[in-house]
């Protein structure tokens, strides 16, 4: 059986909200090391995945590997019944056809129980090669959200050009064109207060507009803004986002979720004509 106790319902709510518009249903793979998930969207353009490590839960028990088929819209409904600061207990018996949730208020004065029916999903698992990326960009997640929103006002795709001078995001459309250049900033990990503003609290003292860029080779990649905007739904889970890119391969966009794990998206680039 699986029994996992998570201190903050907000983490699970946030993860489901950041995936449910990309993936309708998928298997949660549970093992003694944690809970993971991987699924592509219907058009095979974007892959969403997450990992919640066993150590990140207050208590965690998984006696044998379980594959729990869930429909995200159902999960989203159930999790709306939990308050952000509720404790969540997830429980599934071996070979069960339901997944049980218990939401406990922090002062233990209210206990709610819900269950969702599990699905039998024959989902394929994709092998993602371990790779070193030529460019790794780290910026505050709220800045990334604003950037994607701003680019979307003009165009449908964004070109990311990473070079020695910095990383430039540019777009164009019917009304005109726009670009934003970020120069490498070491202040991204600087916890001292400065004039650049700060992140939303949390660890790292992220500068609001700082951008750290590690570059091995120049990278130029065109990406769909529709998908990038979808990925930014994970921004509330993390102070910063890491965008890893190489030429002509899928970009990886990762949001670390506290100490418990991460949510990671892959997006296939636009192909040049």
């Amino acid at each position: 059986m699986l029994e996992a106790r998570l201190l903050q319902a907000s983490i699970l709510k946030g993860i489901v909200e950041s995936v449910k518009d990309l993936v309708r249903e998928a298997n949660f793979d549970c093992s003694d090391s944690g809970i993971s998930f991987q699924a592509m969207d219907e058009s095979n353009v974007a892959l969403s995945s997450f990992l919640l490590r066993a150590e990140g839960f207050e208590t965690y028990r998984c006696d044998r590997n379980l594959s729990l088929g869930v429909r995200f819209s159902s999960l989203s409904k159930i999790l709306k019944c939990a308050n952000n600061d509720d404790i969540v207990v997830i429980r599934a018996e071996d070979d069960a056809d339901v997944l049980n949730f218990v939401f406990e208020s922090p002062d233990e004065s209210k206990i709610s129980e819900y269950q969702i029916k599990l699905l039998d999903i024959d989902g394929e698992h994709l092998s993602i090669p371990e790779q070193e990326f030529d460019c790794v960009i780290k910026m505050s997640s709220s800045e990334f959200s604003k950037l994607c929103r701003d680019m979307t006002l003009l165009g449908q795709t964004v070109v990311i050009d990473a070079a020695k001078e910095g990383v430039k995001f540019s777009t164009y459309g019917d009304i005109g064109a726009g670009s934003v250049l970020y120069k490498h900033s070491s202040s991204i990990d600087d916890s001292s207060s400065g004039s650049g503003g700060k992140g939303r609290g949390g660890s790292g003292g992220m500068s609001a507009r700082g951008c750290s860029i590690e570059l091995r080779e120049p990278v130029s990649l065109e990406l769909s803004l529709k998908y990038l905007n979808n990925f930014t739904k994970a921004a509330p889970l993390s102070d910063y986002v890491v965008i890893s890119a190489s030429n002509e391969i899928p970009v990886m966009v990762q949001f670390d979720v506290g100490d418990i794990g991460y949510i990671r998206y892959y997006l296939a680039p636009q192909i040049k004509d």
Binding site: M40, S43, N44, V45, A46, L47, E124, H125, L126, S127, I128, P129, Q156, T157, E222, S224, I249, P250, Y266, A268, P269, Q270, I271, K272, D273
Partner: peptide, 14 residues
């Protein structure tokens, strides 16, 4: 803009 690429040309089923 180019054509949207697909992930299954990069990632193969296990």
């Amino acid at each position: 803009a180019g054509l949207q690429g697909r992930l299954d040309t990069f990632f193969k089923p296990v």
